[in-house]
């Protein structure tokens, strides 16, 4: 059903009242000087990221609304060697109805129709995911391009993207070649991501920078800018397989790059922190950072995603505490 996807490549949430999907990032020609001028001070960024993420806490009365939004922003993810169609179907059911009936009932109308932003799987699991999500409006995201190391032959990586799109993926999470960043070959990085973007066609491209392997925040900012110039619709921190995953400093750096890119081009690029975000409080910190640095528009699935596998369960527990005063019993939290 590729035609259907071309009309609505990225569906945000819910019914007809949703705003139209954002215009895609057209990208820019590569500009080496623009990249070279970028500087990030690691220490100042780290302390500011912590301050910004914690300085305006969410009032308890508002917290359920924030946590439900966090669910609506989550790319529910399974990226394991032992994934099977059955496992993916189970996860898809969780994506359609993330909270059990008891919790949904207790949270009232706000929780009705709540679902995750997407389901994120490996290429081989795309058909199973599509079948399980049919009619739900929840897009399927596939990791691609030699995930997670990105060191398979370039033509095979481009072909993998193409085949994932053909198999029915609405969104493609590619990994970049870290060596282009580490060796300062920004033009090569631009060309690589550009090729992936072209291979994506109507599917949205998320560029995984694998920031834990890039060495410095200045390089994170430069890689972010190059990825956006190359037409990435989202920039994403990590594969979840690096030694260090999403951190607040890295997130602040990428959000600032997104704002600078918007100021220059008017194009809005999404942000996806992934890996290591597993507590409800973490989700609120990241959302606070995004709201403060990028603005309210970024707290929508069109511009922000959590890449997470265990976050959803933690949010369910926290919601239980908020509405009942205690965590839900295991049988009240359907397994994903």
């Amino acid at each position: 059903m590729p035609d259907e996807r071309a009309r609505a490549p990225l569906r945000p949430v819910g019914g007809d009242t949703d705003p139209p999907p954002p215009v895609r990032n057209p990208g820019l020609a590569f500009d080496a000087d623009r990249i070279a001028a970028i500087r990030v001070n690691a220490r100042a960024t780290a302390s500011q990221a912590h301050t910004i993420a914690t300085r305006r806490p969410v009032a308890p009365a508002q917290e359920p609304a924030w946590l439900m939004r966090a669910i609506a922003l989550t790319d529910l993810t399974t990226l394991s060697g032992d994934d099977t169609p059955g496992r993916v179907r189970r996860l898809a059911a969780k994506a359609r109805a993330p909270l059990g009936p008891a919790l949904t009932g207790a949270l009232g109308p706000a929780a009705e129709g709540l679902h995750t932003a997407a389901l994120c799987v490996y290429h081989e699991m795309i058909p199973a995911a599509r079948a399980a999500l049919a009619g739900s409006g929840i897009p399927v995201a596939a990791v691609s391009a030699g995930f997670p190391a990105g060191l398979s032959p370039f033509d095979l990586r481009v072909d993998e993207v193409r085949r994932s799109v053909a198999a029915g993926a609405d969104e493609i999470d590619i990994v970049i070649s870290r060596r282009h960043v580490l060796l300062g070959d920004w033009a090569a990085l631009h060309a690589e991501i550009r090729a992936f973007r072209e291979a994506c066609g109507p599917a949205h491209l998320k560029a995984i920078l694998a920031t834990g392997e890039l060495g410095s925040l200045t390089d994170v900012a430069r890689a972010s800018m190059v990825a956006m110039m190359a037409g990435a619709d989202f920039i994403k921190t990590s594969t979840g397989k690096e030694p260090v995953n999403a951190t607040l400093s890295v997130s602040l750096t990428m959000l600032r790059a997104i704002r600078a890119y918007e100021a220059e081009t008017g194009a809005r690029v999404g942000f996806k922190p992934a890996g290591g975000i597993s507590k409800a409080a973490d989700a609120l910190s990241w959302m606070a950072l995004v709201q403060a640095e990028a603005g309210d528009d970024w707290l929508t699935p069109g511009l922000f995603r959590f890449g997470a596998s265990s976050l959803l369960g933690a949010i369910e527990k926290r919601l239980g505490v908020l509405v009942w005063g205690h965590a839900p019993a295991p049988w009240q939290m359907p397994m994903g």
Binding site: G14, G15, P57, A59, A61, Q62, T300, P301
Partner: peptide, 13 residues
């Protein structure tokens, strides 16, 4: 769930 309205933080006196 309806559209994505602005999330309010509430007050913290």
């Amino acid at each position: 769930m309806t559209g994505m309205e602005r999330l309010e933080r509430g007050t913290h006196p």
